[in-house]
Design a protein around this nucleic acid. Structure first.
Length: 266
DNA sequence: TAGGCCATCTGGTCCT
DNA sequence: AGGACCAGATGGCCTA
């Protein structure tokens, strides 16, 4: 799939994004393209392979291709830049500080804004969202010039970048407070989330144990081959081992969690 | 070289 | 109406 798209992208690789093309603010030209896309769409709608449909047409995801071609920063270039200045270099991120669960951290967690469960947005149609970006069809807002659209799109991109940066900052803060095995590389996002979840569950067990209550979570042994021979893999979290940088438990739990090996009795 | 991870762009949808 | 949120697409970098 990816290869197909890349092939199709390569065919359109020389095309700059519509909003970066020169003189694209000509409404008439835009309308013509839109109409043509509508015609193509009409012919291709109902085709079983809408992905291939997305590969056709001048509007096919030019962003990436055009970005690398134009002066815009490529994704890789951006990342290299951050890595070079050290602000987010992988080396400095290798958190060898444990980040034990302290009162400060607990208070920090308490400072988090209350999570307001955002209702799952409904998709008008299953393929509509999944192919929204790739589909050549692009509704043009009435009364907005192409230049205005370009400006808004750039502003939207900037906001989205900032939003993702703030999200990454939150991930980084989360990495710092999660005790994990010292690793050469930093935790990936999915690892961070999984470890955080297991950490919370383990701490919950600790609290319940201190209260003399039953532990709500049980860490099951899923990977029998690797854990069966080891000390009591199927047991409650070894909360005594919850020390900074000394928690192979969490690495095990990472795998266990990935395979849904952790159950909740609550 | 394939696969994982990531940053970014993009357009649709939802919310204020 | 505009911004936030979301998910798909894409390409770059890194590692086994």
């Amino acid at each position: 799939m990816k290869s197909l798209e890349r092939v199709s992208g390569a065919s359109a690789g020389e095309a700059a994004p519509f909003w970066l093309e020169d003189d694209v603010d000509d409404e008439e030209v835009d309308v013509d393209v839109e109409d043509r896309d509508h015609d193509v769409e009409d012919m291709l709608l109902g085709s079983e392979d809408s992905t291939s449909t997305s590969s056709i047409g001048p509007h096919h995801r030019g962003g990436k291709l055009g970005r690398s071609k134009t002066g815009g920063q490529s994704a890789g270039g951006e990342r290299r830049l951050r890595g070079s200045d050290g602000s987010e270099s992988s080396g400095s991120e290798r958190s060898d500080r444990g980040g034990a669960c302290s009162a400060v951290e607990r208070s920090a967690m308490a400072q988090l804004p209350p999570l307001q469960p955002r209702p799952k947005r409904k998709l008008s149609c299953s393929s509509a969202a999944s192919h929204a970006g790739a589909h050549p069809l692009r509704r043009r807002k009435s009364g907005i010039s192409a230049r205005e659209r370009n400006l808004r799109r750039l502003e939207s991109n900037e906001r989205e970048r900032m939003r993702m940066h703030s999200l990454n900052d939150a991930f980084e803060q989360l990495r710092e407070v999660i005790p994990h095995v010292k690793m050469e590389r930093k935790l990936s996002k999915i690892e961070t989330l999984t470890l955080a979840k297991n950490y919370i569950m383990a701490l919950t067990n600790v609290i319940c144990e201190m209260r003399g209550e039953e532990k709500p979570y049980t860490f099951l042994d899923v990977d029998c081959e690797t854990n069966a021979s080891e000390e009591g893999a199927e047991q409650s979290p070894q909360t005594d081992d919850l020390e900074p940088n000394n928690n192979s438990l969490f690495q095990e739990n990472l795998q266990l969690g990935n395979s849904s090996g952790i159950t909740s009795d609550a």
